[in-house]
Write a protein that binds this DNA or RNA. Structure first.
Ligand SMILES: [Mn+2]
Ligand SMILES: [Mn+2]
Ligand SMILES: [Mn+2]
Ligand SMILES: [Mn+2]
Lengths: 218, 218
DNA sequence: ATATTTTTTTAGGCAAGTCTAAAAAATAAG
DNA sequence: CTTATTTTTTAGACTTGCCTAAAAAAATAT
């Protein structure tokens, strides 16, 4: 149905549309896929003919219903595979992304359904991101960036905004994992750093870290 | 390292070399891959430059040590994935091949090592074919085509020569699966059909079937 | 030994996906 | 409201992998 390259474009547009309701620009897609704007224009025309995006010259693109469903299914596969790698094959959360980028393109509805069964119908991947259901629907939970919590507020770590292995390994080193209870002890004005309690440990983290950690307030 | 297409050529040559020690002909490869001889010639030149095959014009090809190791690793992945699909995802033996054809190209040494662990280091795939070890070595067992058994000889079904889903579903229907005990009751001269006992069931099978079932004599 | 048939290679072309450089349109600045 | 800058599209080219048709080599038959 769709080539590997087409699937990657659909996924990129899907992710970009989660953060914006305007038309997704050629440059934004090019940046996401680390390719050139001219290549994006070429591909957009093909996707438009295949009725998965709506495209008007110079106006950016939007996914159609079909496009959104197709993209969500790829994201579903990506995240289910990530769960599999962590739960069944002892990968750590910083090792799964690149392999999942390959596995998400495997075409077999039975495979993904059975994987879902084997994993016990998980709702979130190892980075706290929701797994779309078969229809492509996402249930989004209320979560806040750690940086938005006030002094003395407490929450559970439920996700990361940056899934790079560098960041994830840094979190491991600090003892911060999904499910950990985090309390803001102090907010420093001059550099926006935070003193926090993670479980029983106290530590200080920079603004950048606090801007990439999602917390569910309790 | 190698493209999907290159990997498929290497695998085809690898399988053909198991049955022949002469140079593998352009036409044989073309037939195996359902492509044209001219395409094969093109690809062989590329593989030759990459030092995975030895090629002399009009003389056919041989895999080099590197080529053989690379191909065996793809076969290893294919067969481990087939075991996974059957053992963990409830696929039947006639459903796994096409999915494994895709999965065998996923690049991640850790993935395949951990899959091996999860599956308990299987030595054979669901069709009775041996799984190459990490170095690419195959341990071949002594097996015979059912058609070569004499009257009153008995053995265990250990493999199939034809893995098409049509044949495998036919075997399912007849109650013939790997591990079943099979005894030759009668050999008919005029059409080479056999009367056999499978477990406790008696049935008659054609020459064609007997030529595609592997038996380990006991 | 020569002619015929089969196999293999070459030549030229096509589609997908990418790139660079240049042109066109849209946006921002003065 | 013009001019300058940024964004996007077009034009043309390249690589990979495939094809058809024709030429060349090898194998087979007479
Ligand atoms: Mn990921
Ligand atoms: Mn993830
Ligand atoms: Mn197979
Ligand atoms: Mn098999």
């Amino acid at each position: 149905m769709f080539t590997l390259s087409e699937e990657n474009y659909l996924k990129a547009i899907y992710h970009l549309e989660l953060d914006s309701d305007k038309g997704i620009s050629t440059n934004a897609i090019a940046e996401q896929l680390e390719t050139k704007a001219s290549s994006v224009t070429d591909m957009i025309k093909k996707l438009s003919e295949k009725k998965v995006v709506v495209y008007k010259k110079y106006k950016g693109v939007h996914l159609t219903g079909l496009g959104k469903k197709t993209a969500a299914n790829i994201v579903r596969k990506h995240r289910l595979w990530e769960v599999f790698l962590v739960e069944k094959l002892n990968f750590s959360w910083d090792e799964v992304h690149d392999v999942a980028e390959q596995l998400e393109h495997i075409k077999s509805p039975k495979l993904i359904n059975q994987l879902d069964v084997l994993l016990g119908f998980p709702t979130h991947d190892p980075h706290g991101d929701p797994i779309p259901d078969k229809e492509g629907n996402l249930k989004t939970i209320e979560k806040s960036l750690l940086s938005t919590l006030a002094k003395n507020e407490t929450g559970i770590c439920v996700g990361v905004d940056d899934s790079s292995s560098e960041f994830l390994q840094f979190l491991d080193k600090k003892g911060i994992t999904l499910g950990k209870k985090i309390t803001v002890l102090e907010k420093e004005d001059f550099d926006d750093s935070l003193s926090i309690k993670v479980g029983e440990e106290k530590l200080s983290i920079s603004k950048k870290i606090a801007n990439n950690l999602y917390i569910k307030k309790i």
